[in-house]
Nucleic acid binder design. Structure first.
Length: 469
RNA sequence: GCCCCCAUCGUCUAGUGGCCUAGGAUAUCGCGUUCUCAGCGCGAAGACCGGGGUUCGAGUCCCCGUGGGGGUACCA
């Protein structure tokens, strides 16, 4: 039997990190087994559907490189792939259940349908089938409920946790078709998974509690349920529910920050799963080769922005030069650097970046005002306790700027060394005052490169300006 | 309330009864290296939730408690 997995999000907003992790795992698992990855949109709750959310979902998935074999945009043999368009399919299966006596119409109002224990008491179970049919034909408002066992156990086989049993008596005759004819979530999921021939339902652990109901539906439909695997839920760094403000909680944010999609896939795949050799920096291909349900954990995990940043740095370093430059250079030239200088800066910035969005803040030295730079210099040398030799150092450096030849990082570097020699200072004592004078920052990327990127004239001018305040 | 799941360093995790005086990664701190920062190298500190069992032996199995998560919808 071929492996077919699916990702079934609701178009209710941005794609959340927790959901993405589910999508990633389903995709990796399908690819690992040369199976199919199906995208299905669960939009049966018209109230909560958000305009444009579906397209956003697809974009996020595409950006991550998670391609699907069947989906709402490309169709496929088991379509349609938007749940709202599958109403007839849902109703047809529900009708089957009604005919076979596994489901029955219920005419209760909401109040009537709520028992003392908040569960449906089964009032309409006993209505004679003929009478029920007549009332339905007479257009009396009704829903369809599944006839569930009153006693015994419902067993669910979870690939991660093993068999789990639920008391059947806890499950009431729940609604499968609403009074307006639309399916409810649990019924729609089962009918669609059945019709789409899904072999492995891999989803968040939050769905574990729904599974016994779905199990009952599979049984009522006389169909063999797929393999269920519930992935641990992804919590926010503080351990609570994942929220918008816990780092970046949406894929769209990550993309806007210029994160590397392969790094996001890598980091997220490590939440609740570990590589057999405990390797942590992995390419997508390596992930596809290594995914395995057996190595999925059972306990919830916290999203850690710090570690994701580290994974991002690793991927940034591993990126080939062409790809790196293709993304980095535009940011640098937009900041006003011409090609050669942009290359210098790009190279020196690289090992400190986790995302391309981090380039921008490193470039403030280019546009800092003289006032701000001077103020930072004055405050900085005092704060760092380096005021004593500062003027001498600046003078020595200024004297040498003209002689730097050619004007590029390596020559500037030599010039800095010579400056240190004649001023008889070295290390931070030499670098911090100069860096402050040139950039307004006490620390930062390779100074020689930054100075070179300023250009000879501006480099000299900034020193003069600082000396003359 | 009732039902289900989970529980190893701050975080992600390895660990499937003896290999654990619990390993790795990240974050933190220290030292070194490259003229500073970043990086890199080395090192330090840091955990089996609590209590009962079972066993010659428990992080690993069972029970209870506690804590966290989920469900209990004509939401998904």
């Amino acid at each position: 039997m071929s492996v077919r997995t699916r990702f079934a999000p609701s178009p209710t907003g941005r794609l959340h990190l927790g959901n993405v992790r589910t999508a990633i795992f389903n995709w990796l698992f399908a690819r690992h087994h040369d199976g199919a990855f199906v995208l299905r949109i669960e939009d049966t709750d018209l109230e909560r559907n958000v305009e444009g959310a579906e397209e956003g979902l697809l974009e996020d998935l595409r950006w991550l490189g998670l391609d699907w074999d069947e989906g709402p945009d490309i169709g496929g043999p088991h379509g349609p792939y938007r749940q709202s368009e599958r109403g007839e399919l849902h109703r047809a299966h529900a009708r089957q259940l009604w005919i076979s006596g596994r489901a029955y119409p219920c005419f209760c109002s909401e109040e009537e349908a709520t028992g003392e224990d908040r569960r449906y008491p089964g009032t309409c179970r006993a209505i004679d089938p003929g009478e029920a049919q007549r009332r339905v034909d007479a257009d009396e408002a009704h829903v369809l409920r599944l006839r569930t066992p009153d006693a015994g156990e419902v067993e669910v086989l979870d690939q991660v946790r093993g068999p789990i049993t639920f008391p059947a008596s806890d499950i009431d005759d729940f609604v499968i078709i609403r009074s307006d004819g639309r399916t409810t979530y649990n019924f729609g999921v089962v009918v669609d998974d059945l019709l789409m021939r899904i072999s492995h339902v891999i989803r968040g652990a939050g769905h574990l509690s729904n599974t016994p109901k779905q199990q009952l539906i599979w049984e009522a439909l006389d169909a063999a349920p797929p393999a269920f695997a519930h992935l641990p839920d992804v919590l926010s760094p503080d351990g609570g529910k994942l929220s918008k403000r816990s780092g970046a909680a949406a894929v769209a944010d990550l993309r806007a920050e210029g994160a590397l999609p392969e790094a996001v896939v890598n980091y997220l795949s490590l939440l609740g799963w570990s590589h057999p050799e405990e390797r942590e920096v992995l390419t997508v291909d390596e992930l596809v080769a290594a995914v395995d349900l057996d190595r999925v954990g059972a306990s919830d995990t916290a999203f850690d922005p710090e570690k994701m940043r580290w994974v991002g740095q690793q991927h940034m370093s591993a990126l080939d030069d062409g790809a790196y430059l293709a993304s980095a250079l535009p940011v640098l030239s937009e900041a006003g650097l011409e090609v050669d200088r942009a290359r210098w800066v790009a190279e020196t910035l690289r090992n400190r970046l986790a995302t391309f969005g981090e380039i921008r803040p490193q470039l403030t030295y280019l546009t800092i005002s003289d006032d701000a730079r001077r103020a930072a210099f004055r405050a900085g040398i005092v704060e760092e306790g380096l005021a004593v030799n500062a003027e001498t150092i600046l003078l020595e450096a200024h004297r040498r700027v003209e002689g730097v030849d050619p004007w590029q990082p390596s020559a500037v570097k030599d010039m800095l060394r010579e400056t240190g020699q004649s001023a008889e200072v070295r290390g931070r004592e030499l670098y911090v005052p100069l860096r402050l004078a040139w950039t307004g920052e006490a620390h930062g990327p390779d100074l020689a490169t930054l100075v070179a990127s300023l250009g000879r004239a501006e480099a000299a001018r900034r020193l003069r300006d600082t000396l003359n305040y």
